[in-house]
Design a protein around this nucleic acid. Structure first.
Lengths: 137, 137
DNA sequence: AATGAAATGGTGCGCTG
DNA sequence: CAGCGCACCATTTCATT
């Protein structure tokens, strides 16, 4: 599938994509254009080795709230070390994925999370080793 | 920074990157080449809207083990719905990020996780709403 | 969806600070 | 050693069938 090939390497020429899927370069280009138009392909990016530049610690933070936190997204997005934020069903209200340079910086992020309205507590899960982080096809 | 600009849009011409950072196109190209060489930039990919093609449910799975699970990465990687797998310090041994079409498929993934050697239990956190999933600069 | 032509950007090189 | 400017070539993009 075109999506899978582009996930592996988005610099592949359309001619090569076409050959892989039994089409001409132009036709492959047209299909990809439509995938972008429909929003299936959101954008073209680079994958960065976070550890290689000053982000050696990954952690997940379970955030408890004492009020409705359905509108806290913007406040959490203002903390640059927060990579993901989800409202969850389960043992907490919100789950964050956080990357920092070290444990001192992680502690500082937790302090800033506590400053968000409605946050009543956090439980932090530190990552010891990452088996893989990949993109699903 | 070049990294940030390429994360936003990796199709930007080098000439434009150069202008944004006060360099010529060729010089910008050279810097990016070195970042790739050093492994800071791992690859160029596309960001896919998972919901837009049949992956509407996101969940995190806390996996308990009754033996050492430090070598289970390959077994977990063999389950295509598992997007991330980390060894963690905290309330479980391993944390997975999983995406499936629906709750029935999620249940099936949990069954396959149980088939991995050493797995003695799971606790599943289902995502109700994603505030954001972004790339850190 | 294929083809071919025109426009654009990527790539290598000699030169300079 | 890093950056510049130019020339060349591969790729994207578009009009036509």
């Amino acid at each position: 599938m075109l999506i899978g090939l582009l996930q592996e390497d988005a610099t592949r020429p359309y001619a090569e994509l076409g050959k892989a899927v039994g089409l001409s370069g132009g036709a492959a280009h047209e299909r990809v254009r439509k995938l972008r138009e429909r929003g299936v392909i959101r954008r073209t990016t680079i994958e960065v080795d976070q550890a290689a530049l000053g982000r050696g610690v990954t952690a997940y933070v379970l955030v408890d709230g004492d009020t409705w936190m359905g509108d806290s997204g913007d406040r959490l997005a203002a903390i640059p070390e927060v990579e993901e934020a989800h409202v969850i069903a389960g043992p907490a209200s919100v789950l964050l994925k956080v990357r920092t340079a070290g444990t001192a910086e992680l502690q500082d992020v937790l302090r800033r999370v506590f400053d968000v309205d409605g946050v009543s507590g956090t439980k932090t899960i530190v990552v010891l080793e990452t088996f893989f982080e990949r993109s699903l096809k």
